[in-house]
């Protein structure tokens, strides 16, 4: 259980996290979603006490993280920024971490095998690929058998097999009753992994809702219609209260009427239809729409920047 109340972090003039309140519950996977610079990593750093909130509080399992007797047993964390000395081997890194909590060498071997690093465990971390580094970070997060697992973009740099593995791992941890909190930019990934979503943009909380509600509410369905008599059909549909736009000649995008209603309308006036197909906005589009106003670092197309 992670509880944030009015959490705010300012870096000088810049407000990275702005009055955010949420509760991350055990037994489910909670996705933490937002565009670049939205404040996800900053929030996670505050949860484990690396950064002190400017105002507000955050507790883990009922207490500020630093007040727990055995922090590694409370929260296992994978941070976005690298957090391992490159001159040490993976095994020695884990042994040093384990020593702070009296965790056995056997447990260290266990997590090394769990993440599949047994062949390179004695190699210097400096020589690791991005994906191997992520696996080591996940191993470190699991080391203390933590009640709460918090991962900042865990699939970053992982191959497809690794992505699937993380997905299963998170689900398994949640099913054991643990609190799982994972950040991502990718709505599609979260739709597969998470049960609940916290969406932030420009430091503000935008949504706190279940994934199924998000999918239901966010995806506006439209219908694509092709007809040689598109102009006449358009008038009729507008008359029935639909919103109609057109992206090509003889083609209409209709929002607000079902395929059945559109087909019937056309038949009543004896209009020919070539195509009548429902179009579901992708989750990614829904997410972009939701965070559209709060995107801070927008990329520009060539024409835009030329203008």
């Amino acid at each position: 259980m992670i509880e944030a109340r009015g959490l705010t972090k300012k870096y000088g003039e810049k407000t990275a996290v702005d009055d955010v309140t949420f509760t991350i519950r055990p037994g489910i996977v909670t996705g933490f979603l937002g565009p670049n610079g939205a404040g996800k990593s900053t929030t996670m750093r505050m949860i484990v006490g690396l950064d002190a909130p400017t105002t507000g509080t955050v507790t883990v399992n009922g207490r500020p993280f630093a007040e727990h007797a055995s922090p590694l047993h409370e929260v296992g964390v994978l941070l976005e920024a690298r957090a391992v000395h490159t001159g040490r081997s993976a095994e020695n890194h884990l042994l040093a971490m384990a020593a702070t909590a009296g965790i056995s060498r056997r447990r260290v071997q266990e997590v090394i095998e769990l993440v599949g690093l047994q062949d390179v465990a004695r190699k210097r971390v400096g020589a690791f690929s991005l994906g191997m580094g992520q696996r080591l970070g996940i191993a470190a997060a699991l080391l203390g058998d933590p009640q709460t697992i918090m991962l900042d973009e865990p699939v970053n740099g992982l191959d497809p097999e690794g992505v699937r593995w993380v997905r299963h791992l998170l689900r398994g941890l949640a099913d054991e009753g643990r609190t799982v909190f994972v950040s991502s930019h990718l709505m599609s990934e979260m739709a597969l992994t998470a049960d609940h979503l916290i969406v932030v943009g420009r430091g503000r909380l935008i949504r706190d809702m279940s994934v199924s509600d998000f999918i239901a509410s966010a995806s506006t369905e439209s219908v694509r219609v092709r007809s040689p008599q598109a102009t006449e059909l358009r008038e009729l549909l507008l008359g029935k209260g639909a919103k109609v736009s057109s992206s090509a000649r003889n083609e209409l995008d209709v929002v607000g009427l079902t395929t059945d209603e559109i087909g019937t309308t056309a038949a009543e006036s004896q209009l020919t239809l070539y195509e009548l197909s429902p179009v579901q906005a992708s989750l990614e589009e829904a997410f972009m729409e939701l965070t559209g106003e709060s995107v801070e670092y927008r990329s520009h197309t060539v024409e835009e920047s030329a203008a």
């Binding site: 055990p26 037994g27 007797a69 055995s70 922090p71 590694l72 047993h73 000395h85 040490r88 020695n92 042994l95 040093a96 971490m97 020593a99 702070t100 909590a101 009296g102 965790i103 056995s104 447990r107 080391l143 203390g144 058998d145 009640q147 054991e176 009753g177 643990r178």
Partner: peptide, 27 residues
């Protein structure tokens, strides 16, 4: 709320100064 781990001994012990020193020595 961790039914599986209830019977097993805890994997992690409280942090104390001796353990912190051990960790630094390993480092």
């Amino acid at each position: 709320h961790q039914p599986a781990a209830a019977a097993a001994p805890r994997i992690a012990q409280p942090v104390n100064f001796v353990r912190t020193v051990t960790s630094e020595w390993i480092k």
